[in-house]
């Protein structure tokens, strides 16, 4: 039996028209922006399946762009995403693409920063505003943004994970889920830590200081 809370029924507060084509899309864009972590110069959206066919009618384009600019699913500026993007000089492009055997509402977002750093994030909007992040660059991942999430990019070496959990434990942060994804032994890996509580800048700083860690992205739990 599916579980519901009171605010799953009365809520979320969102920008219409569609929880999967609008609200979910904002979320994917937002998470991609947080993972990239640098100011964005150019963004390309590769739209698959139903997203590719219906994105203009449903406002999925404006929703994705809004997320990348840091708006959340209840932000009334979503409607004006194009003019806001233009005013800050953001280059954006929507491209229809076949992303393979994936959910019909899938998008791959490629973000490029001024310094030339490129990040690719692939995610699917799976209904009711719920999403799944499926890929970061070439690494398959799986998380949904329902919890406050840490995404750590690190060299695959012994002791890194212990270092991170030690910092969290010291600050009595409870870990709900933790998953490790890597391509090959000894290369870059991604650790996804989903937590019950928010963390402070100080905790984030301490985690960033753990040896072999390259990047840390922090995403607060979203209402949707």
């Amino acid at each position: 039996m599916e579980q519901f809370g009171v605010f799953d029924i009365i809520g979320p507060i969102m920008i219409g028209p569609s929880s999967s084509h609008t609200a979910g899309a904002v979320k994917i864009g937002y998470i991609a922006m947080r993972i990239h972590g640098k100011s964005i110069k150019k963004v390309q959206f590769y739209l698959h399946g139903s997203f590719a066919k219906t994105y203009v009618g449903h406002g999925t384009d404006r929703a994705l762009l809004s997320g990348v600019m840091g708006f959340l699913p209840d932000d009334e500026r979503i409607k004006d995403a194009y003019s806001i993007g233009d005013s800050i000089g953001l280059e954006y492009e929507f491209i229809e693409a076949d992303l393979g055997e994936v959910h019909p509402n899938t998008v791959k977002i490629q973000l490029t920063s001024k310094e030339g750093k490129i990040t690719e994030v692939m995610g699917a909007s799976i209904g009711g505003g719920k999403i799944k992040i499926l890929k970061i660059n070439d690494i398959d991942v799986a998380f949904d943004g329902e919890y406050t999430t840490l995404i750590v990019k690190h060299y695959d070496r012994p002791g890194v994970i212990a270092g991170i959990t030690a910092v969290l434990a010291e600050h009595t942060i409870n870990i709900a889920f933790m998953k490790l994804f890597r391509q090959a032994k000894g290369e870059f890996a991604r650790l996804i830590v989903e937590m019950d509580d928010s963390i402070t800048r100080q905790v984030l700083k301490e985690i960033k200081a753990v040896k072999y860690i390259k990047e840390v992205a922090y995403i607060e739990k979203m209402a949707l």
């Binding site: 029924i9 009365i10 809520g11 920008i15 929880s19 979503i78 409607k79 505003g129």
Partner: peptide
């Protein structure tokens, strides 16, 4: 019209 509502 892409305004803010409460899904309910």
């Amino acid at each position: 019209s892409m305004g803010r509502i409460v899904a309910c």
